[in-house]
Design a protein around this nucleic acid. Structure first.
Lengths: 231, 231
DNA sequence: ATATTATATTGATAAATATCAATTTATTTT
DNA sequence: AAAATAAATTGATATTTATCAATATAATAT
């Protein structure tokens, strides 16, 4: 965790999350007073599960993975974040602890906003508040899909889902380069690294995808979608 | 779905959820105007996944299961509800659809509050609003635990968790009678009915629990907790 | 109470997935 | 570039879990 800066103000910032467009100028100014930006190297924690929750973060540059640290070293990656994405915490209003970890997968920047300031603004602005509830509820819906996917589908369907997620939601291309390791993809699908590799290989052998050590090309997305459906 | 009544007002109601204690008298009166109570027979839907979300519910009597309907008929029971529990919906502010189903497992009553009225009150009362966020965040934390438990633990740990959940959180006794079927317990643990039955039998054979067709007695909770830990 | 239906149980087997060890390939350091 | 380290891959095998079919038990209707 290196340099941090405060060289711009929220009002003119074009990297602010859409949520903040619901704020008044005064509220933005108030947030701007305590906010700060941090530069993270690849592999560094923005949030650490169990640690105190003191700030809401906005990823303004780079990319990060959000994951749950399970009991037996088993991590479950919930999602990948890219600019500009808000990173809240369900510890907010509950126990003020982080319940997931956020780690950058490439050099990144985040803007950190004091949780108390955030709370004040929530109190003062009801449309901001409803937008925030919308944000949380969307996260819950994604979590529901994750839960039914990981518990109800077999390896093939889960790997297909991960690949489609990366292609459709994250990189927005059918061919992409990624910093995710095989272990990361395994953590996205609740599989072991070895099983994950085997399914990828199968897909490659069947001509559905091709890949190198850090790039993927989804040749036949329809087939992946079909595999996702039939599990 | 049979009788419904409106024979009391929220102000004097001692079955109201704690959340509503944050409301002013006027706000309570406002909610009271549109609310109504419904009696459900065992097995009836309070909410149905995919259906329109029009009301927030409060379970005031009986018991219900909240579950996700997966693609291949696989349901995942998220939790059991008893009085007095609020039943919101992540569709609120998002798509106004239900994203889970709620079905009673015994004759029950619920108080239904118009979602628009609820939204108005959220807007007008910021401490109510923050409490609601707290409510949602607690649900998210439970969901995280569900996700890591179901993906990271083996059958034994998952059954142990389900039994401990029923004993500690739902029935508050180490010996309890339940309306849950074996299939329901399987749905709580993301197992098949048969696997679920086998693990229960193992636990019985080892003297950890005893059970009949609709009752359980947890003889050795410490052992169950140990099994939960080692997975 | 008997018949009927649904639920629970058991056994045998197949399928899915993880584990462990060895090897290869890629990445980083010297 | 060579050496050292980390990550990816493969194969063999064990473990976990589901499936299918049969039977038993419980719950409900007649």
């Amino acid at each position: 965790m290196a340099k941090f800066s405060k060289n711009s103000i929220c009002y003119t910032c074009n990297l602010k999350h859409n949520l903040f467009r619901f704020l008044t100028d005064d509220e933005l100014k108030y947030i701007n007073e305590s906010r700060y930006e941090v530069h993270y190297n690849k592999g560094e924690n923005i949030f650490k599960q169990g640690d105190a929750f003191t700030h809401i973060a906005c990823l303004t540059y780079g990319m990060a993975k959000v994951y749950l640290e399970g009991e037996n070293d088993k991590n479950v990656i919930l999602r990948l974040l890219k600019p500009v994405e808000l990173i809240g915490s369900p510890g907010f209003q509950v126990d003020n602890r982080h319940h997931f970890s956020v780690v950058t997968i490439q050099d990144s920047r985040a803007c950190l906003i004091d949780a108390n300031v955030f709370e004040q603004v929530l109190k003062s602005n009801s449309s901001f508040n409803l937008e925030f509830i919308k944000y949380i509820n969307n996260a819950t819906i994604r979590l529901f899909n994750k839960l039914t996917g990981l518990t109800g589908k077999h390896m093939h369907g889960r790997i297909a889902d991960a690949l489609l997620y990366l292609s459709d939601q994250v990189y927005k291309k059918s061919s992409f380069t990624t910093n995710l390791s095989r272990q990361d993809i395994a953590d996205m699908t609740a599989l072991t690294k070895e099983s994950c590799i085997r399914i990828l290989k199968e897909f490659k052998d069947e001509g559905i995808i091709e890949y190198g050590s850090n790039s993927f090309n989804l040749l036949d997305k329809e087939k992946l979608e079909m595999i996702s459906r039939v599990s």
